[in-house]
Design a protein around this nucleic acid. Structure first.
Lengths: 208, 208
DNA sequence: ATACATATATAACACCGTTATTGGGGTACT
DNA sequence: AGTACCCCAATAACGGTGTTATATATGTAT
């Protein structure tokens, strides 16, 4: 019915990988279509038929990155000690973000586009929101287990989960945007910070 | 010794104000020198002698915004109840960020530039770092007062201050980048979140 | 009066994302 | 077989960007 596609899904994946690398090494703003096309032996219009626009290409990278992040979260082993698992989950969260700081910023911060009014990608149950939910699902599961075992108090899972997530994100995003965090031992400081976030939702004596 | 300056500090301030407005309404990436120059009846080269580059202009805006944010923090009254003052400080923090989300993102997130290796503006005691320190000084003071009154435990001020700040920033930055936060009553949810951050550093029975 | 230093304007440079135009390559129907 | 059709990709153009080389104006110092 039409001219056959010269570039298959493999080239599409290669473009996404290359753009992700570019974001990691040079930041989002360094992503440029002409050099990218040249590197892959195609024209910019080919990228346009594959993705639609530069923003859409970056959105594809973000989507892929969320997947990578999610896999890194899901690969944290479950030991049976939900609190220890929670620490490991938090450490993996931070490690991923510090390994790809520019990706983390883009994927959680919408790449610096105007934040107030929002596009369709943030409607409930858009692919991106589903992926985002899945990304923090491991965290919520451990929180639920901790509550079931009395390690956390009888607060709503969603409230505790969102709070711990927001707290972790705050610390990590500061570390990811600035050169170094305060203190001599960032790893230990982060551990103590995580502990404080969890301590905040400890059972009260009445809750026993 | 040279040709007299056609544009004084007033025009410089006007340029900063205008650029800040532009960031607020259209995001950083919408800041463009040619329209800006035309609006102020000068050429782009005039902007270059005044600021040096587009990035430097935005950096000037950021510096000014940090000042505005700091003033908003410092205008929170001191009632004598340090814990209540802390809540008000946290509320003012969030209100400023939600009023100027794009500014908040740029001022704390470095405008989406590559975050890993860092420029000179982040060296200890650079003007920007001094301004940043001053911006959260009110928070640290209240934390210290709370500890002095036994509302907070005997932890290092810096650890408690940084933790609460990171936590607040995490929540607020999520709210500032996404359209709406989860939950029906965002204000109340944020209040409960702040309470959890402070509860984490409550005195232990031994400390009490 | 002349030399020098600097602020500004004009115009150019090298790029950018995007798109109109053109052509190539296949299917489907006559 | 021929032809109409449709889609993909390449070329080239459009309008825009930040930045800078060049030229000019305007002052001070000699």
């Amino acid at each position: 019915m039409a001219r056959p596609r010269k570039f298959d899904d493999e080239t599409r994946a290669a473009l996404i990988r290359d753009t992700a690398d570019q974001i990691v090494t040079g930041g989002v703003e360094s992503v440029s279509l002409r050099p990218l096309a040249a590197k892959h032996g195609c024209s910019t219009t080919a990228i346009y038929t594959m993705f639609g626009s530069r923003d859409a290409l970056i959105e594809a990278v973000v989507y892929e990155s969320v997947g990578s992040f999610t896999r890194s979260q899901e690969s944290v082993p479950i030991t049976g000690d939900p609190l220890e698992d929670l620490w490991e989950l938090g450490r993996a969260y931070r490690q991923w973000a510090l390994k790809y700081p520019a990706l983390y910023v883009v994927m959680i911060g919408r790449g610096g586009k105007r934040p107030d009014i929002s596009p369709e990608e943030f409607t409930e149950d858009s692919p991106r929101m589903i992926a985002a939910k899945k990304a923090i699902e491991s965290l919520f599961k451990r929180v639920a287990e901790c509550r079931a075992q009395g390690i956390l108090g009888d607060y709503p899972i969603e409230e505790m989960g969102n709070s711990i997530w927001a707290g972790v994100h705050g610390w990590v995003s500061i570390e990811a945007t600035r050169p170094v965090m305060i203190g001599q031992d960032p790893d230990a400081a982060y551990d103590r910070y995580m502990q404080s976030l969890v301590r905040a939702w400890a059972p009260t004596p009445q809750q026993g």
